[in-house]
Design a protein around this nucleic acid. Structure first.
Lengths: 147, 147
DNA sequence: CTAATATCAGGACAACTGATATAT
DNA sequence: CATATATCAGTTTTCCTGATATTA
């Protein structure tokens, strides 16, 4: 098994990553995101919370996504009262998106996510060292994405 | 930033993983898979090649997917002449799927994947140690999936 | 009769492409 | 005029649920 042999060659590692990504995506999809929001929507709330107000296009770039796709996500968040939009006083083309009070409250109550499946698995099934190793791997994946 | 601080808390790590998975999936999606096949189809060919003949249901379980979904994937692979189906002599419900000669040739010519974006990034942008760390992280992700 | 396999049919969702209006 | 932002409309891809036939 791979847990014994490890992943020997670089080409195999690339293949492994592709399959793991697909499986993990489906696995995560089984877990319903909190409060009727999709995981894409949750990700946008996280970006707005940590990076502050931005535009639809900037969010799309941050998520490697088309602005049309991001526009749809943002529209539902606005409809849910989690994101507010205001025209940019300088650049008339842009609309500045900000998290509403309701959004910040939502994040606060959901961030702990004690009921979160992924959180629970990491916490209970992985040792402290393994958690560190996993974090390291995620950092490397992030670097790959930005390449 | 996280590249400096690392990922401090477990709940943040869970969040990080979710966003990284989404972004990486889209990033990989930009890269066209070889020879008109989808990445799901490529994954199935890989399973057939490394694990030998199986059934649709077994493949679906391996990929965390419904048998109906896997059935559709396999059907296209059969239509492409990459997978052959034979009735199980013992269990009349099952159909045994095997890679065809054409499949093995396809894998041989594509496995090296020197033109593969992900492969290239890992090989050229990551040090040997980082490649090891990444492989370690992927192993841990696999363990999480199977939990 | 219950469980497992496979397949048919229809549907939901996320992201895509193309086209358009507007502002720089 | 060329570029950037945002949005409307339609499409594709991927996987889903529900129902059905068959065999164990």
């Amino acid at each position: 098994m791979s847990s014994k042999l490890g992943i020997a060659r670089t080409s195999e590692l690339a293949t492994e990553i592709r399959t793991v990504i697909g499986k993990l995506k489906r696995r995560l999809g089984e877990q319903a995101p909190p409060a009727h929001l999709s995981w894409s929507q949750v990700a946008v709330l996280g970006l707005l919370d940590s990076n502050g107000p931005t535009t639809v296009s900037a969010l799309a770039r941050a998520e490697n996504m088309r602005s049309q796709s991001m526009g749809a996500i943002v529209a539902t968040l606005q409809a849910a009262g989690l994101v507010s939009s205001a025209p940019d006083p300088v650049d008339g083309r842009q609309a500045i998106l900000s998290p509403t009070k309701k959004c910040r409250e939502w994040i606060k109550t959901n961030r702990m996510a004690r009921e979160d499946w992924l959180f629970q698995v990491i916490r209970t099934k992985l040792s402290a060292q393994e958690q560190k190793d996993l974090a390291r791997g995620v950092e490397l994946l992030k670097r790959i994405i930005d390449t």
